[in-house]
Design a protein around this nucleic acid. Structure first.
Lengths: 214, 214
DNA sequence: CTAACAGTGGAACGGACCGTTCCGCTCTGC
DNA sequence: GCAGAGCGGAACGGTCCGTTCCACTGTTAG
């Protein structure tokens, strides 16, 4: 087996390469379940020792940042995919369904504040905001989204879906889908509906999570 | 000032009686903000020493149990009030608005599992379930609630509202009201709506919180 | 007036938890 | 064979938190 350039690696090298994946997967599962789980829980779940973790990441903060950034990228990717969909309303609802299914919200918002973000994350977050705005604009254009709904209502919506949580992951997905259906029905425009109350959610109102907490 | 039967107490006694209230209020505020806040945070918020707490409660668990039970009783009280309302739909929505405003959900569900419940709490919880069912039945009877909504959808709804959380309490209330409005719109019956997906939430699916966690 | 004492503040203790380091081992790649 | 990459997991140091304890103070009964 080749050592420096080949694709198939044997023995130790292969094991190490596989561990890269296994560890990230375990970390995602563990921190999704509990954002302040100990590092040891990740190692245990991955079936590796703690050293295997520290060989790859400088510390817990590094791992969390990586995870969060991955979530952010996933969000952006799903939004870009959605924008390729010709039907405006389907693009909007499909995007939300995929983001909810992937639990991207827990991966990004709920992990923020536990590490100092990079510049690139700031840029990605900004891009995510632009894409979301584009999707909401198109949803408005389709006439299916109630006029008084704003972009930042997506924050509320995603929070609401992420809050649904039962022990079984598949069941969690089902219940979240139901929650999403109710919320989308509520955001659909109907002839003579009462307007949504209160000042609508605004730009900076959910950024408080990005600052230090507990 | 009388010592054993009078209404007005002076000095120490009065201070102590007032502390009863102050401490409970502080505990509610603190644990609402963070269910695993330290006891010391409650004392600080109340402006008293730690002794003042331990004189009244055997330990943290006692305090939490009391708080949770109070929340449960509030839920029951609001439900009973709502059942006096003649308009079926108004009873339903009014009940939810008051429960959301009082943040009863955080006080009960989010605190459960941190203590061993009493028998009386079990009875109250059962009664709460019955009253909620009665309210949902009446809402169905009014024809305003979509037919495929079930009692346990209230669990999802309350969870969704409780998940909304910003630093300012009053703003939190406003945003929760908005979230509630969207959800109620989504639960309203409209002529030709797609049915809600998935098996509806069932009886035991949210009880997992009452078992030990972290 | 004064002796007991209920009520209190907050320091101190003991234990749990957790991030990180470190050491000895294994097994690979040269 | 042998140097060392990769690893498992014990051990360390630090933080945090529930609870206890003690000295103190104003009140109240006699």
């Amino acid at each position: 087996m080749s050592t420096t350039s080949g694709k198939t690696l044997g023995g130790r090298r292969a094991q190490a390469a596989r561990n890269d994946e296994v560890i990230l997967e375990a970390a995602r599962a563990v921190f999704l379940d509990d954002p302040k789980a100990p590092i040891a829980a990740v190692a245990e779940r991955a079936g590796v020792g703690i050293s295997a973790l520290y060989r790859r990441y400088a510390g817990k903060e590094d791992l969390l940042r990586q995870l969060c950034h991955d979530g952010l990228r996933r969000y952006v990717a799903e939004a870009e995919t959605a924008l390729d969909e010709p039907d405006d309303w389907a693009a909007f609802t499909g995007f939300l369904a995929r983001v909810v299914d992937a639990d991207v919200h827990s991966l990004t918002v709920h992990l923020a504040g536990t590490f100092t973000p990079t510049e690139e994350m700031g840029r990605d977050a900004m891009r995510a905001g632009e894409l979301a705005t584009a999707l909401v604009d198109r949803a408005h254009a389709s006439g299916r989204l109630r006029p008084d709904a704003v972009v930042h209502d997506l924050g509320l919506l995603l929070e609401a879906c992420a809050a649904v949580r039962v022990p079984d992951p598949e069941r969690t997905r089902q219940l979240r889908r139901r929650q999403l259906a109710v919320l989308l029905a509520g955001l659909s425009s109907v002839p003579d509906a009462d307007p949504l109350p209160g000042p609508p959610p605004a730009a900076g109102e959910f950024d408080w999570r990005w600052r230090l907490r507990e």
